[in-house]
């Protein structure tokens, strides 16, 4: 639905999230424009993954507002966070894809079925249509010969590329990556990063939580540095990495 904010794919406003007494997100706001690649960096426990999980409906925020692709997932009314109904939530879920750190492929499905199952049973595409989409994506991932293989027979890098294909299959407006290469050795990391780079070139909107600093610098348009549940600093990728303003950012980047 075209509106004034059509160019903003993800709009997060002042979200708070606590687990028991521990406040993990302390009023995070961020916007991601169409075609933009945003890298989220920072030390472990800084709230990066929780932010991603909140944006992808896997966790519910306590306060704040999240808008994805123009649809309001949740908003705060009279100090209480209210989520949209199940039907809209399902629609919102079709607008984004999520790539997990440990892939989370379905081990009992072939590569093809991992990619087509949601297309057929959630998006009601015909099997032929789904197969066609699957083939295109696997070609892109250089895995077309693995369509009938099972995840357990693939390397970690191949599994992650399949999971990227699975996330892309429903043609989402934005893809979230949660440390997509943390479970991979350097050799396998390369292949996955290349795929993400290609997507960036095609102007896919992406939010990437990563520890790969040089990758973030080269591929992201913008970097967000998070620590202690807040955004400490954000800015154009190259500038933030080469010339950070905040002491906390400098200290973190000095470790790389």
């Amino acid at each position: 639905m075209p509106d004034a904010n059509n160019d903003i794919v993800l709009d997060i406003k002042a979200i708070h999230k606590s687990f028991d007494d521990l406040e993990v997100l302390k009023g995070i706001s961020m916007q991601v424009n169409r075609g933009e690649v945003v890298a989220v960096i920072g030390p472990s426990g800084g709230g990066k993954s929780t932010l991603l999980r909140c944006a992808t409906t896997l966790e519910k925020v306590d306060l704040g507002k999240i808008v994805i692709g123009g649809d309001v997932l949740c908003d705060t009314v009279d100090g209480r966070c209210v989520y949209c109904d199940k039907k809209l939530e399902k629609e919102i879920r079709s607008k984004f894809g999520l790539v997990f750190q440990n892939f989370n492929l379905f081990p009992h499905f072939s590569v093809r079925r991992n990619i087509t199952e949601a297309l057929i049973h959630v998006h009601k595409k015909s099997k032929d249509e789904a197969d066609k989409i699957c083939k295109e994506l696997l070609t892109k991932m250089e895995l077309v010969e693995k369509a009938d293989a099972y995840p357990c027979n693939l390397s970690g890098g191949q599994q992650q590329r399949v999971s990227i294909a699975r996330a892309l299959a429903t043609n989402p407006e934005i893809i979230f990556f949660d440390e997509p290469t943390s479970a991979l050795d350097p050799e396998l990391t390369k292949g996955v990063l290349k795929v993400i780079k290609d997507l960036a070139r095609e102007k896919m909107t992406m939010v990437i939580v990563t520890h790969e600093m040089s990758f973030a610098r080269d591929v992201a348009d913008r970097i967000v540095f998070m620590d202690g549940g807040v955004i400490v600093e954000e800015g154009p990728a190259y500038e933030l990495v080469t010339n950070p303003k905040q002491e906390r950012t400098k200290a973190f980047l000095a470790g790389y």
């Binding site: 379905f106 049973h121 959630v122």
Partner: peptide, 16 residues
Amino acid sequence: KGQYEAATVLGFTKMQ
């Protein structure tokens, strides 16, 4: 938990 989460994000219903 990841199996449930992957299914949720892909839009599968609880029954599916």
